[in-house]
Amino acid sequence: MWQFFHKLGSPKWFFGIAARLMPWLLAGGILLLMAGIVWGLAYAPKDYLQGNSYRIIFIHVPTAFLAQSVYVMMAVAAVVTLVWRMKLADVFVKSVAPVGLVLTFLSLFTGAVWGKPTWGTWWVWDARLTSMLILLFLYGGVIALDRAINDEKSAARAVSVLVLVGVVNIPIIQYSVEWWNTLHQPSTFKLTEKPSMPAEMWVPLLLSVLGLYLLFGWLACLRMQTEILLREQRTRWVKDYVLAGRG
């Protein structure tokens, strides 16, 4: 098990694995996401109360879900960076932070577009919306802090600490709708109970969440490969790889 862990720390080894995984992640992601979105937007029944406007759920929920889960992954990587000083963990954090930022922005934007027809307002300062906005700023802060420090190692540590500090926000986002009175409705999906929507609505939603996960995996691999090439540009294997690619 430890051997696997040490292998995982080797950028060269990861580079090869990522190259092999990526086509599958991309194909699976596009397939599932398209299936989920088309089914959700065109074929799923409309809601008895919200009519067709509820369909934005098929984009809003996957992006919001991924935005939080990417942050949790970053926090795990931050612990690995701080404790084991594994280079690859830092590469991961640096590569996915902008992706998380975009996902958070998309979930806030689609939520606002949804809020206008259903609630009657684009934005309200309730606990769920505000904590999600804080998540957006956290992603922005992680990116900015990483850019602000030139030395790779100190940047990695500073960023890891910031990511870890921010992780307390995740349970707040998750439980905000239960702990406080909010305008945002409570979760439709709970771990212990049946979802409070019929299968012809939650199956396409699940498909698009899974599809977005796979696509995120593909994008993370791609960005990590780029970052590895940049960082390891003076090593033998990168030179060989680049020369082979040119020839």
């Binding site: 809601d47 759920i57 259903t118 609630w119 307002t121 309200v124 439709t188 929507m197 019929p198």
Partner: peptide, 18 residues
């Protein structure tokens, strides 16, 4: 001076609601 609608976490097709 402002009234906002709050909806719940339940979604269902109109026929089921009826």
């Amino acid at each position: 001076d402002q009234v906002l609608a709050k909806h719940d976490e339940n979604y269902m097709p109109p026929e089921v609601a009826d």
